[in-house]
Amino acid sequence: MSKREPLFSAKQRALMLGPLSKNNPVIVQILGICSALAVTAKLEPAIVMGLAVTVVAAFANVILSLLRNTIPTRIRIIVQLVVVATLVIMVDQLLKAYAYDVSKQLSVFVGLIITNCIIMGRIEAFALGNKVWPSFLDGVGNGLGYGVILVIMGACREALGSGTLLGFQIVPQGLYDFGYANNGLMILPPMALILVGIVIWVHRSRNKELIES
């Protein structure tokens, strides 16, 4: 009998931790940008969206990894869409039931998890060719990598744009009395684009090997 690999061997850990920085789905592979930008005006919806995508990515990877030997290659896209859509409907119904306010703020972007390229991309590139446990870790890792960027952007935009974090005021009242004003531009759509450009800039100047020639 062959020796079993430990559940969290170095290779498995790399699957989960790689996507957090060096192989980040959003700022390195440029996938799933659409929702990453739209839900980050405040921190709370950004966190919820990050969790939702992590859950869908992990379970979609697990299910399709289980099914990988039974799906005919020609119809795999439609099978993937059905599995992902079912998971997203479940997430959507759960959010509506337990976090109605956040679900209202996320509006159509919960539905758009279906067409999030991260999820389809990981299924195509990883889950269809790997065993269940590595696929699960890969899904969790990529979901979290996506979540990290969302949280960074959400925190910056909420702190600078509204002076709050998760609804609590963090800019002291004294500053406002001195004439400090919130930067209203931060919560408008254009700043999300510029901010993600800056995040990419910082990330690439720290990881020189990612610079495009």
């Binding site: 999300a192 684009l193 450009g197 495009e212």
Partner: peptide, 16 residues
């Protein structure tokens, strides 16, 4: 600036 080449600058221009 080198680290901004490609996607980075595209994002910033889209923002503008």
């Amino acid at each position: 600036p080198k680290p901004l080449k490609g996607v980075g600058i595209s994002f910033i221009i889209t923002g503008l």
